[in-house]
Amino acid sequence: MATVSYAARDSRTMLRRNLKKALRYPSMTFTVISMPVMMLLLFNYVFGSTLGTGISALPTADGAGAGAGTGSGTGSGNYIDYVAPGIILMAATSGALTTAISVCVDKTEGIVDRFRTMPISRTAFLTGHVISSVIQTMAGIALVLGVALLMGFRPNATPVEWLAAIGLLTLLTLALSWLSTGIGLVAKTPETASNIPMPLTLLPFLGSAIVPPESMPTGLRWFAENQPFTPVIETLRGLWLGTGIGNSAVIAVAWCGALLLVGYLWARHTFRTGAKR
């Protein structure tokens, strides 16, 4: 119990350090958060009319348009309902950039080596960065959600469905935070750390964030339907807008759990291996 207590205390200290550092240097956090907001404005106001009309014309299993009876925002007037869940998820993936860079900066500046010589928990450094990342990313998600609501996003979710959506986003953010922590530990420079997570931020574009996979060519459609972020986006749409979820929720949680496990084990192994060098 004493060991757990010391680890929790040291992790709180590291968390406080990282949050103060983020407040002292907010430019990186602001840049990462502003990108999903810009994407939301771009796709809704610039491309929304064309994309929304195209989505509503897609046939469904019953032969009706894709927008008929789904409530998912597929007409040109409510494309914001379709695109908002995908852009909100992009806010979660964008947070990986900040985490990877922050961890890499600590490593390259030598502060990690100093921590290793101090009588603190070995996991406190990693835990502090991960929890700090989750807090900052969830704040960014709340900001993007607020902008979406101002733009006309109108979810009809119950309180339980809201809690489920927030829980799924938190789980995804936690998984990506551990994964990006591992990236920051293996990256040689902060510039490299900022480039490696870039595919994570772009992957939702190759899913159902902007348009349905049904509108894509066969090969790209297969990839879009089977990549990690599409079931998360579809689950968020179902929870917020009342569209069908099917087995997307189970697949989304499974993907998040797998990413969390891989990221956690990778980050711990990399940190411990570095300590032995």
Rank of each mutant, 00 (worst) to 15 (best):
V83W: 11
V105G: 03
T93H: 01
G95V: 09
T235V: 08
G246E: 10
G54I: 00
P231D: 08
V160I: 13
Y82R: 12
L23R: 03
G86S: 13
P212Y: 01
F30Q: 10
G75Q: 08
R221A: 15
V253A: 14
T70I: 12
F223E: 12
T230C: 10
G238N: 08
T74C: 10
L265M: 07
A157M: 05
K21H: 14
V103K: 03
S208A: 01
P212G: 00
C256L: 03
E109I: 08
T3W: 14
T137F: 04
K188F: 08
T50H: 07
L19M: 10
R116P: 00
A164S: 04
M138G: 07
L23D: 03
P59I: 13
Y45Q: 05
S121C: 03
S194I: 01
L97Y: 01
T117I: 07
L168I: 04
I135E: 02
L172W: 15
N18R: 13
R16F: 12
V250P: 04
L202M: 05
S248D: 14
G246H: 11
V83N: 08
G65M: 13
M90C: 11
W222H: 10
L51Q: 06
A22W: 11
G244Y: 12
V134E: 03
A142M: 06
T243A: 15
T99Q: 05
M138T: 03
A96D: 02
T218M: 01
G242C: 11
